[in-house]
Design a protein around this nucleic acid. Structure first.
Lengths: 261, 261
DNA sequence: TCAAGAAGGAATGTATACATTTCACTTAAG
DNA sequence: CTTAAGTGAAATGTATACATTCCTTCTTGA
C-alpha cells in the first residue's frame, strides 16, 4: 500500500506522514499502551514524556487527552494521567459489549451486503485459516499469524457495517489493555478451530443476507471467546505458573484495591 | 495582565465547583451543543470562544478535544473543530446501537439486581408517568416533564448495569446532536403510552431477575423509538410545515453533501 | 511517640508568544 | 474571461513561562 493520493509534506521528513505532532504522538502512545510498554495503573508524567519524545508538553497533553477519551488512560483533574486498569470483571464486560456490537455489525453487514474488496479479504482469511489450522499443533508464530487472520476477518465486517459510531465503539471495546489480542491467540487448538468454523458460518449467513442469523452467530462467536477467557483466568488463578501471558496476569489480577483514587 | 492573581476561578461567574477551567468549559460547551446553540456542521473557532468565555485558548483546546472524543465535535488536524453532523441514517444507526446496548444493560441489571435507591427512582418514574399519561392531551410542558421521567427511568437502569464502559457508550449513543431527547417527546400520545407500558414490563422482568426477557423487551423498546423517529422523519419530509422541531429538521436533513471533508 | 501543620519541591493548569498551515483574495499570464 | 500562482491575514499547532495544586517531608507541639 503506497502513500495516499496527495501528500505534499511529510515526505520531506522521511518519516511516516503525520499531520501534526499531536496525532503522531497519540498513535505512538496508543501502540505503546496496547503493547504493554506501560503497567496498568502506572502514572504517566507529561514532562517525562516530553523529554523522552523531544517535544513540548503541549502536544503531549493533547495526545493524553485523546487517549483518555478512548478509554486507554484515566485522567484525574489535578493529579495527572494513569494507564487505565481493567479488572477481570471489566474485561469480561468488555467482551459482552463487544459481542452485542459485533452482532449488530454483522447484521448490518448482511443487510447492506459486502463489497468485492471485503469479500476478498474475508475469503482469504477463511482460506488461510483453513490451511493453518490443519497443523497438529500451533507454534507461537502460528498463533500470532492466526491472530492477524482473525483481526482481518473482523475488521472487514466492521467496515461492512458502514457505521462510524459502531466502528468507534468496537475499537474501544477491543482496547482493554494488554489483554485483548494477546490472549485470544493463547487458547487450545480445538477452540481456535471451532471459532474459525464460526467464521465460515458467519460469512455464509452474511452472503445469504440473513441478518438475524449473522447477528446471532456473531454474538455467540464473541461470547465464546469470553467464556474461553474466563476459563483461562480461572486456570491462571489455580496454577500460577502458567507459561502463557504472565504479563497479562500481572495486568489484571488483584489490582482493584490499588486503584488510584 | 495578571488576571490569575486578581480573581480565583469561579468567583466571578459564581458557577458551581469546577476542578479546572477545562472541565468547566467542557461541560458548558457540551450543554450548549446538545441544546442546539450551535448549528450542525458549524465551525468552532478557538479564539472566538476564548474571547467569549474570557479564558485563554489552552483550556478551550482541552475542552474541544474532550468533546471530539465524545463524538460531539469533529476535529480535522489543521482545520479546526466542527459540530458533528448526523445524517438521518446515522441517527437511526445510533438508535440501533443504543437499543442493543440498553438491552445488554437491562440484562445485566436483571442479573445483578437493583439496589433500593434505583428501585425507588424507577417506581417513582412509573407512578408519575402513569399519572401524567392519564390526561387526554399533553401540553409542551407535559411532554418535557415526561422526557425527564423517561430519562430518570433509563438512567437508573444504566447505573444498575454497573459497567463503566457500557455507561460511556450509552452516553455517546444518546448524544446525537439536538435530535435526541427533544424528538422523543414529540410523538403521538398513544406511542408515549405504549412506551411507558414498556417501562412497566421491563421493570417487572428486572425484578423477576429474568435477564433474557429484560434484554428483549428493552431492545425492542428502544427500537420502537427508532421506528417512531423514522416515521416522524418521513412525515417531516412530506409536509415541511410540521410545527414540531423545525430546528431538528434543519439539523439533519440534506446536509450530507455539505460535509466538511 | 504520635499527630497536626507548615514548607518545600514537583507536577499539572493556564496564559501567551511564536511557528506553521490554511484559505481567500489579488494579480498576472494564457 | 478564465485559470493559475502568489501574497497576505487569520486560524491552528507548538513552545515556554508563569500560576496553582498536590504531595512529601520536616518540624513542632502535646
Amino acid at each position: 500500500m503506497h502513500s495516499q493520493s496527495d501528500l505534499q509534506d511529510g515526505a520531506r521528513t522521511g518519516e511516516l506522514d503525520a499531520p501534526t505532532r499531536s496525532v503522531s504522538i497519540t498513535e505512538q502512545l496508543r501502540c505503546g499502551i496496547l503493547a504493554g510498554d506501560f503497567q496498568p495503573g502506572e502514572r504517566i508524567y507529561e514532562v517525562n514524556l516530553s523529554e523522552k519524545l523531544k517535544v513540548s508538553r503541549t502536544p503531549i497533553r493533547a495526545a493524553l487527552q485523546s487517549l483518555a477519551g478512548e478509554g486507554l488512560l484515566r485522567h484525574i483533574p489535578n493529579r495527572g494521567y494513569y494507564v487505565q486498569e481493567f479488572s477481570v470483571d471489566e474485561i469480561v464486560q468488555a467482551y459482552e459489549i463487544r459481542a452485542t456490537l459485533e452482532g449488530l455489525c454483522a447484521k448490518r453487514a448482511a443487510q447492506l451486503g459486502l463489497n468485492a474488496e471485503d469479500r476478498d479479504i474475508i475469503e482469504r482469511a477463511l482460506r488461510e485459516g483453513d490451511l493453518l489450522l490443519q497443523k497438529e499443533e500451533l507454534s507461537a508464530d502460528d498463533r500470532s499469524i492466526y491472530g492477524e487472520i482473525n483481526a482481518a476477518f473482523h475488521s472487514a465486517i466492521h467496515r461492512a457495517g458502514q457505521s462510524r459510531m459502531l466502528r468507534d465503539m468496537l475499537r474501544v471495546s477491543q482496547q482493554v489493555a494488554p489483554s485483548s489480542h494477546r490472549n485470544v491467540i493463547a487458547f487450545e487448538l480445538r477452540d481456535v478451530r471451532r471459532r474459525h468454523d464460526d467464521h465460515h458460518r458467519i460469512y455464509e449467513s452474511i452472503l445469504y443476507r440473513d441478518g438475524g442469523r449473522a447477528e446471532l452467530l456473531m454474538r455467540d462467536h464473541v461470547e465464546t471467546v469470553k467464556i474461553s477467557l474466563i476459563r483461562s483466568f480461572s486456570r491462571e488463578a489455580t496454577s500460577p505458573d502458567g507459561a502463557v501471558s504472565s504479563r497479562t496476569a500481572k495486568g489484571v489480577s488483584s489490582r482493584e484495591i490499588r486503584r488510584v483514587k
